[in-house]
């Protein structure tokens, strides 16, 4: 993904044209790309959620601000679950084993967070998201109604709204 972007940027600079803006993912359905859970099984996110509202976090172990928000996501997952929602974490560009080892080292292996990897960026590309951390809020109909960077007050407000 980054290579394609880099080449696109170079070409665009050389031709004097700007690349087309990435369409906003707001109010778009969750892509039916199958995500890989840490135990290896594949599952599309809409099936996993099954009509539940959710907060989805795209992250990577090398991203310091992603790691810094892990404790907050763990707290949120417990409380969202009690309110009928879910928290899903997707490690982009990573394979299952190093992510599982990393989460174990962080004390985050057994939490209420649904942990997945998106090794080949298919899920992130389908959403048009190119950065980590990215925080998405999905309503009960499986539509992405909020997209932001790190977990913040705006994301929590959006989650509260879709859980009501």
């Amino acid at each position: 993904m980054f290579a394609r972007l880099a080449i696109l940027t170079l070409l665009a600079d050389g031709c004097g044209v700007r690349p087309a803006p990435v369409p906003t993912p707001l109010e778009r359905p969750l892509p039916r790309v199958a995500l890989q859970a840490l135990d290896g099984r594949l599952q599309p996110l809409p099936e996993l959620l099954g009509g539940r509202a959710a907060l989805v976090s795209l992250w990577a172990p090398w991203c310091e601000s992603c790691v810094a928000e892990l404790p907050s996501l763990m707290r949120l997952a417990e409380r969202a679950k009690a309110n009928g929602g879910a928290v899903v974490s997707v490690a982009v560009g990573e394979s299952t084993r190093p992510v599982a080892e990393f989460l174990a080292a962080q004390g985050a292996a057994r939490t209420a967070i649904y942990q997945f990897v998106d090794e080949r960026f298919r899920f992130a590309d389908a959403l048009g998201e190119k950065r980590v951390p990215t925080t998405l809020v999905v309503d009960r109909r499986g539509r992405v109604v909020f997209a932001g960077a790190a977990l913040d007050e705006r994301a929590l407000a959006a989650l509260r709204t879709v859980l009501q």
Partner: peptide, 11 residues
């Protein structure tokens, strides 16, 4: 009291 408030979740 809000369980999903910023005060309750964010560090």
């Amino acid at each position: 009291d809000e369980p999903l408030s910023a005060d309750a979740i964010l560090d």
